[in-house]
Design a protein around this nucleic acid. Structure first.
Lengths: 125, 125
DNA sequence: TTTGATTTACGAAATTATTCGTAGACTAAG
DNA sequence: CTTAGTCTACGAATAATTTCGTAAATCAAA
């Protein structure tokens, strides 16, 4: 499936990924922490997302319950790919080093990455 | 400076980063390889980008010469940041591993990354 | 039952982004 | 000089995205 949420839609997906199933109000209150828009704006966006298949909704009760229909993992792959091609000249390694350089990663995180790299190098077991 | 190119603008920046200084025609022909839009469309976009300060242009000759006014490096930082927050729950390590997993990196690239990590761990010299 | 709050649906305004047509200036070739 | 081609400027059409107002249904409390 083609993943092409707009900016606003991505903000909503983010919340759904984090919180799981949500009502429009749940999402709206979370959004309201950072930006300011009306309730019906959020509602409309989520309705559109349902049409597009970006979210699923359970309409058995009056208050509909939404959840993401695209996995965060797929979205990650998609955006990474796009970004590597768009701004990193196609080099994943380039992106990785930029990412590590600018975000203070904990020692534990760095260790995890190194182990991961070893495993990539040596996929025997 | 705030970096906020649109999709189309990013495509153009990409070309400018790669080729350095370009005329509108240079950019347009490159764009034409992948999409199909009129020459004046590209022209207009680049004019808008000049207004916004995304590109600089030399207008001494009839045929103007454009170059990127935002560095690729800054754009990389900007988009990485955005992406880490938007789809990777704020974890750079998470992004790094996803990136390494999906893009076949050469052994040399992986080595380079490991060295980079060691250096991060041990910033003594 | 009545009132007030909450919900969905929906149309449409407002904003932002993209595309293109046309006009006028310049250039190079004949 | 004339013609054909290329360039910029610019306005405006089109398309995509975001925002919101209003109406109708449902619900819960008094």
């Amino acid at each position: 499936m083609e993943i092409k949420p707009t900016e606003s839609e991505l903000e909503i997906l983010q919340i759904l990924w984090q919180k799981g199933s949500c009502t429009v109000r749940d999402v709206h209150e979370e959004l309201a922490l950072n930006k300011d828009a009306g309730y019906t704006t959020t509602l409309k966006l989520m309705q559109i997302m349902a049409e597009k298949g970006l979210v699923e909704r359970d309409t058995t009760n009056r208050t509909h319950v939404y959840k993401a229909a695209v996995s965060q993992d797929d979205a990650q792959k998609h955006y990474l790919d796009k970004m590597i091609n768009n701004v990193f000249n196609g080099s994943a390694a380039n992106l990785v080093m930029q990412a590590l350089g600018n975000h203070k990663s904990s020692k534990a995180e760095i260790e995890a990455i190194k182990q991961y790299l070893d495993q990539l190098n040596n996929p025997s077991k």
